[in-house]
Design a protein around this nucleic acid. Structure first.
Lengths: 174, 174
DNA sequence: CACTGCGATGTCAGTGACTGTCGTCAACGG
DNA sequence: CCGTTGACGACAGTCACTGACATCGCAGTG
């Protein structure tokens, strides 16, 4: 079903594709489509909960000596690592999202839940406010910038390398 | 029209209010409502472009000696300053948004355009990538955290004070 | 004063995203 | 062999939003 949707979005664009179109190509009913996905946009964000969970686990498993920001960044590297072997898919998906404001909104929401989850994980590590929120926000910002760079690059670098690069730039800010 | 919408959202919630309801209370047609607002959510984000513009101007007007982050933060203080004398409204609005995921999505999108505008303004100041993006992201993060604190506080502090506080915490991260 | 845009609005019909409900059918455990 | 359960199709309904066209008030112009 996700495959059918991505095909159609690539062919005619997101708005020009109706939920019925996707369902038809997938060989099911429109009603069934909405049983699997809360709304038309969700079909592009299927793996998001897994990534968030992975990031959370990595933050909790990070060595104790790590600063809050370092722990949060470790989570981003772990989460982004899931994309490492599906770069093709990630690039196509990212192109579709870039072409539609509504999808960007949804992506922002997913990043926000990543931020919240990271904040909670830092709390569990004993980090207090507002440091936890700021470290989580900063780490997700780094993730965002790193992802953009990783997707745009011709010679694909390691995702972790992109994160390191963006994190270094962040440190140089203050 | 904005007043009518806020009343209804507060009375029965965002989802339980139809565009027709808002139009009726405002004494116009549903069609007219959609001539003034691109969609039902936009009615809560009317002042956003002005705030973004104010922030942009402040970034461009900041003293040359300011670092990129300092300039971006000056923009956030200026933008947030617009809310200073309408705190009541800001608090009610923020409660409505917090109660609805769709509205949070839209708010995130507005923050993203603030980030983009700030990035562009930094570019105009001669700041290069990825520093410009990261400084803008960081400043908007500070804005976000500061705003949440400003809205939640019982004894309302100055918005600028909230920004300073959050910015100090940010600096302590690295 | 009559005439002429023109911008804001009302009216109406239509599309598409979602939702609630009900019936069917196949897998599965007892 | 039978009751349960879960996934699905069928269908009707609501609501967000859009395009097309008619109307109306108002400013400027002769």
């Amino acid at each position: 079903m996700i495959g059918a949707a991505m095909e159609l979005f690539a062919e005619r664009g997101f708005e020009q594709t109706t939920a019925g179109d996707i369902a038809e190509r997938a060989g099911v009913t429109e009603r069934t489509f909405f049983r699997h996905f809360a709304d038309k946009r969700e079909v592009l964000f299927d793996g998001s909960p897994i990534m968030v969970q992975t990031a959370r686990d990595a933050i909790l498993d990070a060595p104790e000596r790590f600063t809050p920001l370092e722990a949060a960044l470790a989570g981003m590297v772990a989460g982004g690592g899931l994309l490492e072997d599906r770069r093709e898919h990630a690039v196509r998906r990212s192109g579709i999202i870039a072409a539609n404001p509504g999808l960007q909104e949804r992506e922002l929401l997913k990043l926000a839940t990543l931020t919240e989850t990271a904040t909670d994980a830092l709390h569990e590590r004993g980090v207090a406010e507002p440091v936890a929120s700021l470290a989580a926000h900063s780490a997700v910002t780094v993730f965002h910038v790193a992802f953009a760079h990783w997707v745009a690059a011709d010679e694909p670098p390691t995702f972790a390398a992109c994160v390191d690069e963006a994190a270094a730039a962040l440190r140089s800010l203050t």
